[in-house]
Nucleic acid binder design. Structure first.
Lengths: 335, 335
DNA sequence: CTTAAGTACTGCAACGTTGTATAGTCCAGT
DNA sequence: ACTGGACTATACAACGTTGCAGTACTTAAG
């Protein structure tokens, strides 16, 4: 029903291939012919059929972005930025939600969509290490974790150093009983492990006890529940490092609900710098990863792999992105 | 490079079509043959080429969801729910961010992606009324607004009634100086107009003055700025109805920053019931649209249009989805 | 005047898949 | 033994596009 090259060709009185040439900007087309073809295209409202193009070229112009969940503001932000970065290359982004399910993540790495996408930007949650190595031929860029030196490109901040920065900041306020909310034992929870390592290193250095609260996932409710446990069991902390901002906002809620003052009684710092934390009361201190740069680098890396240049086949690259400590009200006061 | 039916056929010693039949679950294939083909498929890691399928069938199995921005929690939530609903029909969802730019929205409605997608679920921001009528042949379901009785299906809550509910709730607390934050004058800002109408109707009924604050967009910063203006100019309100939760959270921030008590001095209610509002301090009263149902209905409606049934060609349908008032701390106390 | 190079355009094949048409085999019911 | 039907499998064409090869004409160079 929609017009194809054939219809345009008939209307303009030229061959199909000439229309194709016009559409693709081939140089050797007489201006008069070009104009006639253009007119026919406009008149019929011709739009190239991507399926046919892809069938011929093997390229779809679509890349997939796989994230655990869009509801999480950090991933929503990264997704938005990646869509923008991909747009510059006129790529379309297909967003896959894994919900952190290992099965889904495995499918993606195994190339479930191999024919539909040219490349994959993947923020793994349930998979780690060697499981990410089962490559499918589709270029893949990993996001967020430093992975065992695997076969894939990889963009991340230095989680451990950033966590250490956050913890050190709490120390610098004179706090001595510093808790961590966000511990996870699953071997695939690389983010949690790395941030925990940073936290531990600073406390060890200062000769302080650690106070580690596990969570099932990284949502507000988990942070609120963990904080409640922390307050119910034994001596309360005077500072909390939450492994992401959602946990921190949950913890904040519990603290305020119980009439504690933040940062007066307890200082709170998060991780990710989501917008919520800039408008909460108190506003939330946090580690701010350079999300725009992460998105840009991920797309650039994929572009290199997809290009015809020499970089298309080089060894996997690991790119480090900067982070910075953002001090806001939740840690601004004295003890 | 990846194997096709041809390769599987060669390995299994059958015709291409037989492999196709096995893949598509055609009944009349001998068990032995089927097994042999299956084995070959496993061995080669065959995956159907979607481009070729689409080229044959005209169907891509992909629907597009166009929203203003993923960063907004409400849209992120709806997007997540639509992805889930689409999954039940094994559809893939392509998410388009319009950033509220009219040009992009026009392109979508005009069928920019016509060959890549089977249908479109569209939450318009810059376009309204007749501009949405330029249909492209791709089935479209509109989200969120009651649109001029256009040619497209449409799922929405009753914005005006919901806004009236919110305003009436503030009235029921005995508040008399009730402001509205979120007014927009652009003719395409249908949401803002409808919510304003609901607000006005209740105040008119009660014989109270309206106090209307315009905003550029519906983000936290806009809410914070509008609230600041409200407090700086003349007599402050004792209640505020914000046209979405982000505005409300911004307003909340400004109020608390200035030492006002919520709801003591000023009661605040929002709209959308995003998760943030359940963990803010105070927690945020709001209008909760049944987002899961919106998502489900939108996908179902699209499925009907795409199916072969009689509903595929009927007149456009307008579906109303329920909403409810959720009272939380930000309006819970007495004046 | 011939040759070579460049320009303008066309035809054919192929990408991987599936619908239609077809052909052979086997069995049950006449 | 003969017909009709169900079962199993195959060949061919077509979806819309583009790479490649090729034709015909024009111009510049030798």
């Amino acid at each position: 029903m929609p017009p194809g090259l054939k219809d345009v060709a008939a209307r303009a009185g030229v061959s199909i291939k000439t229309v194709s040439n016009v559409v693709n900007g081939y140089v050797h087309v007489a201006p008069a012919t070009r104009a006639r073809v253009q007119a026919a295209i406009e008149a019929l409202g011709y739009v190239p059929n991507m399926a046919a193009r892809q069938l011929r070229s093997g390229r779809s112009g679509v890349i997939a972005l796989a994230v655990p969940e869009l509801q999480s503001p950090y991933f929503a932000e990264v997704a938005g930025l990646i869509v923008q970065a991909a747009e510059q290359r006129s790529w379309t982004v297909l967003i896959d939600q894994t919900d952190g399910q290992a099965e889904r993540e495995r499918n993606l790495v195994a190339g479930l969509r191999r024919h539909a996408i040219d490349g994959l930007i993947f923020s793994p949650l349930a998979l780690a290490g060697e499981e990410l190595a089962h490559q499918s031929g589709t270029p893949m860029v990993l996001l967020g974790e430093r992975v065992w030196h695997g076969p894939a490109d990889h963009v991340a901040i230095d989680n451990t150093a950033a966590a250490a920065d956050a913890t050190r900041h709490l120390r610098s306020l004179g706090r001595r009983r510093i808790a961590a909310i966000g511990v996870q034992t699953a071997p695939s929870a690389v983010t949690a492990h790395q941030r925990l390592a940073g936290y531990r290193s600073v406390l060890a250095e200062a000769g302080l006890e650690t106070l580690e609260m596990p969570v099932a996932s990284f949502h507000r409710a988990d942070g609120a529940a963990a904080m409640a446990r922390l307050l119910d069991e034994g001596e309360p902390p005077d500072a909390v490092f939450c492994f992401n901002d959602l946990l921190a906002l949950g913890a904040l809620r519990t603290l305020l609900e119980r009439g504690l003052s933040v940062p007066g009684d307890v200082a709170v710092i998060g991780f990710d710098d989501i917008e919520d934390g800039r408008f909460s009361t108190p506003t939330l201190s946090t580690i701010s990863p350079d999300a725009a740069r992460i998105a840009q680098l991920a797309v650039d890396l994929l572009a290199e792999r997809l290009g015809d240049g020499p970089a298309a086949v080089g060894a996997p690259r690991e790119l480090r992105v900067d982070h910075r400590l953002v001090v806001r009200e939740s840690t601004a006061g004295a003890a």
